[in-house]
Design a protein around this nucleic acid. Structure first.
Length: 184
DNA sequence: ACTCCGATTGTT
DNA sequence: ACAATCGGAGTA
């Protein structure tokens, strides 16, 4: 599912401003059996992860480090809390608006926090149906398998070795890992 | 009530 | 290498 979202189009009309791009980096979170998931068994249903237990095609938005927003696409059926974190986007429309929202900083939408900031995604979109404005997910372009990279998820401690991060090799919207901690 | 810390980013 | 910044989740 996370792999399939590569090449899809994400369109935002938040604030009446059109911004869009192609998804080039994702991470899968496998729910109950995934210790890195916000909806792992040991956590159970909470107010925060409620959207992940809902129907697929909705947005699970959460705040991280008290300052950044991250957005997931809920992919599991109702009651099965699977989700895909959107980590990187190649901008298509509204580059100027993105730059403004990003405070002139670059890159525009490489990284989950930057992606949300560039598209104006906040907690106001918690549980939002991604078939409708102001945030829509649409079919985009098929990505050749040979161009897809796979690796461990970034920033997670538990199950960091599971190959659940997918990205389009060479795409500018893929986040860069500054420092990586090596296992002892 | 209190502690710990995170699916990050930007600066030093 | 480290600060920013705060709510979620665990413990008491």
């Amino acid at each position: 599912m996370a792999r399939g979202l590569l090449g899809a189009r994400l369109i935002s009309d938040v604030g009446g401003i059109r911004t869009s791009g192609v998804i080039v980096e994702t991470e899968a979170y496998e729910g109950l059996d995934d210790p890195a998931s916000h909806a792992a068994t040991r956590v159970g249903r909470t107010r925060r992860n409620r959207a992940m237990f809902g129907p697929p095609g909705r947005a699970y938005v959460y705040r991280i480090y008290g300052m950044h927003w991250c957005v997931n696409v809920v992919t599991g059926r109702e009651g099965d809390p699977q989700a895909v974190l959107l980590r990187g986007l190649d901008p298509l429309e509204g580059l100027e608006a993105m730059a403004h929202r990003r405070g002139g900083r670059t890159p525009l939408a490489a990284g989950p926090g930057r992606l949300c900031q560039a598209l104006g995604i906040t907690g106001a979109l918690y549980g939002h149906d991604l078939r409708r404005p102001p945030l829509r997910l649409e079919p985009g372009w098929a990505v050749e398998r040979v161009r897809i990279g796979v690796g461990g998820r970034i920033g997670v401690r538990a199950a960091a070795d599971r190959p659940l991060r997918f990205y389009v090799q060479g795409a500018p919207g893929v986040s860069r890992v500054l420092s990586r901690r090596e296992p002892p």
